[in-house]
Amino acid sequence: MSQLPIPDGVHFFAHLPLAWHATLQQSTFEATRYLAVLAEFEASSDERNHAQEALHAKLDLMLLWTAKHLSQDLPPAKDAVIALETISWLDATALPMGAHGALTLSLSRIFPFSLQLPAEIISCAVSGQGYAITARLQLKEEALRDWFERTVFRNHRRIVHSERGAAA
C-alpha cells in the first residue's frame, strides 16, 4: 500500500471491494442508513438486556442473509486508503482528473453491501503496473457525512488498538 498517498489525519488501509462509476445510483438515505446499521452491527452488545439481544440476533441474521444475497454484485477488491474526505486506491485503469461520479465500495466483510458515495477524481498517477487514484468525497448531506466519518474513526481506532496489542 506504500504506492498510495497517505493523507494527514484519521484514515485506515483496507483491501476491499471498490469500483468507480460515472453516475451515482444510490440514494443518500440508503447510504446513510447502511452506515448507521453497520455501526450498530459492529457495536458491543454490553448495553442490551437478554430480550433486546435476542431481537438483535434475529435482525442481524436477517440483515446478513440479505447482504449475502446482494453481495454477489460486489466489485473486485483493491488496496485502498480511506480517509475522512478522500479515498485512494490502486487500479489498472486511469481515470480523468475532475471526473464526477460515485465510488462503490463495501466496508465490511461480515456485513457486505455496495455503498455508493459521490466523489470527484482529484489525482491519477502512474504507480507500478497501474494507477494510484484519489477521489475527494462529495458528501453534501450532513447525516451521510457524519455516519461516514464515524465509520472512518471506528476503523482507525480498531487498527490502532490492534497495533498497540501486537506491540505489547
Rank of each mutant, 00 (worst) to 15 (best):
A19F: 00
A19P: 05
W20E: 11
W20G: 06
W20Q: 11
A22P: 10
A22H: 12
T23E: 15
T23S: 14
L24H: 06
Q25I: 06
F29L: 11
E30M: 01
R33D: 11
Y34E: 08
L35E: 12
A39S: 13
E40R: 13
F41P: 02
E42H: 11
S45K: 08
S45P: 02
S45R: 13
D46S: 11
D46W: 06
D46L: 10
D46R: 11
E47P: 00
R48T: 12
R48W: 13
R48N: 11
N49L: 09
H50L: 15
H50C: 12
H50M: 13
E53T: 14
L55K: 02
A57I: 00
A57D: 00
D60I: 01
D60Y: 01
L61Y: 02
M62G: 05
L64M: 09
L64V: 09
A67C: 15
K68R: 15
L70P: 04
S71M: 08
L74A: 05
L74H: 07
L74C: 07
P75L: 01
P76C: 06
A77D: 14
K78F: 07
A80I: 01
V81C: 01
A83F: 04
E85V: 11
E85W: 02
I87Q: 08
S88Q: 12
S88I: 13
W89C: 01
W89I: 04
L90T: 03
L90Y: 04
L90S: 07
D91V: 00
D91L: 00
A92L: 05
T93R: 13
A94S: 07
M97G: 06
G98N: 06
A99S: 15
G101R: 05
G101N: 05
G101P: 10
G101W: 10
T104K: 03
S106W: 10
L107Y: 09
S108D: 13
F113M: 07
F113N: 01
S114P: 15
S114N: 13
L115Q: 03
L115D: 06
L115F: 03
Q116E: 11
E120K: 12
I121C: 11
I122E: 13
C124L: 08
A125H: 09
G128Q: 06
G128P: 09
G130A: 14
A132Y: 14
I133D: 01
A135H: 00
L137K: 05
L139E: 08
L139N: 11
K140Q: 14
E141S: 12
L144P: 04
L144D: 03
D146R: 03
F148R: 03
F148H: 14
E149C: 03
R150C: 04
R150D: 07
R150Q: 10
T151H: 14
V152L: 12
R154Y: 11
N155V: 07
H156R: 08
R157S: 10
R157W: 09
